[in-house]
């Protein structure tokens, strides 16, 4: 009898705990929904620091939760229905990704547009746990970045009483990497953007209040990626003082200009004719010399 009571209590406690967690998550979502953008498209360009090349462009549709990221390496497009497309920065390369799930890829949005990311959380697109209300207002919650990669630590986020993401830390005591989120003064109205991402600084940003009709268009995103690739190639070419610089896109560099010429000097094309001519002259001289001795 006592064992049954214990069991009932234990099961009840687990259920209560689970319901409590759900209630806290619901509370978080209701809170965030008051502050995150729900309409409009924001697009931003981040440029590499001086001496480096490699711009990045981002876009987020607050109405649907769709977003894209493009660079010289390629493009990622996340559709409202959760589909992820990835590919190299060339026309026709964007294809459904088998590499990653949508909720894991959504972490990328936090790296440039935290309110956009919080919008995804509010939409229920990103699983959260360990939600707790903060005494001063706001919430702390944890996001599991990818359940398929157990070695990747979860991220703990702190949102203040105004719904602004203020701190991010890794759920890893050995390497918490706790940091305040720094926003750019160039942030457009309604969307606070990070001042820096992946080492790059925010250069331009714009908001389309009425949305962008073909925001989820594969052709549009591929075109942006191709342009990013070309821009990066031009920057690299300028670094080389106008010399031609070429690379293989497969290894993370940039294509778009011819390869560096081989080390062969300009006369290499005349090699064999020169050899033949030299041999002929030497042979002629030897023959002439021999004949001259014979005549003496």
């Amino acid at each position: 009898m006592s064992r049954s009571i214990h069991c009932a209590v234990a099961v009840g406690a687990a259920l209560c705990s689970s319901r409590e967690a759900m209630a806290q998550t619901d509370s978080l979502n209701v809170f965030l929904d008051r502050y995150v953008p729900r309409q409009g498209v924001v697009e931003a360009t981040y440029l590499a620091k001086p001496g480096f090349a490699g711009e990045m462009q981002f876009g987020f549709d607050a109405a649907t939760g769709a977003w894209y990221e493009v660079s010289h390496l390629g493009a990622t497009l996340r559709r409202a229905n959760g589909e992820i497309l990835e590919g190299d920065p060339y026309p026709g390369m964007l294809k459904p990704s088998k590499r990653i799930k949508a909720f894991s890829a959504d972490i990328a949005v936090m790296e440039w547009c935290p309110p956009c990311f919080l919008r995804l959380v509010a939409l229920g697109n990103v699983p959260v746990d360990n939600v707790e209300a903060l005494p001063e207002g706001g919430y702390r919650f944890r996001i599991r970045s990818d359940q398929a990669l157990p070695d990747v630590p979860a991220l703990v986020n702190e949102v203040d009483a105004s719904g602004v993401l203020r701190r991010v830390a890794r759920d890893d005591p050995a390497d918490p990497r706790e940091a305040n989120v720094v926003y750019s003064e160039k942030s457009p109205a309604g969307f606070l953007l990070r001042a820096e991402t992946a080492g790059r600084n925010l250069a331009t940003a714009s908001v389309h209040e009425g949305g962008v009709r073909d925001f989820e268009s594969v052709a549009r995103v591929e075109s942006l990626a191709a342009q990013s690739r070309v821009n990066t190639a031009r920057t690299l070419a300028a670094m080389s003082g106008g010399s031609l610089v070429g690379t293989n896109p497969a290894d993370g560099a940039v294509e778009g200009t011819p390869s560096v010429p081989a080390a062969s000097p300009p006369l290499s094309g005349y090699r064999w004719p020169l050899v033949v001519l030299g041999v002929v002259l030497i042979a002629a001289a030897v023959v002439y010399r021999v004949r001259g001795r014979g005549q003496l």
């Binding site: 081989a262 080390a263 062969s264 000097p265 006369l267 290499s268 005349y270 090699r271 064999w272 004719p273 020169l274 050899v275 001519l277 030299g278 041999v279 002929v280 002259l281 030497i282 002629a284 001289a285 030897v286 002439y288 010399r289 001259g292």
Partner: peptide, 27 residues
């Protein structure tokens, strides 16, 4: 003059051959 001619021919031929080898592409 024959000797000189012979010397010139050998010299030029040798130089051309060396120059040709020097322009060979590296492996």
């Amino acid at each position: 003059s024959t000797k000189r001619g012979w010397s010139y021919a050998v010299s030029v031929g040798t130089c051309l051959a060396v120059a040709a080898l020097a322009t060979a592409e590296s492996v």
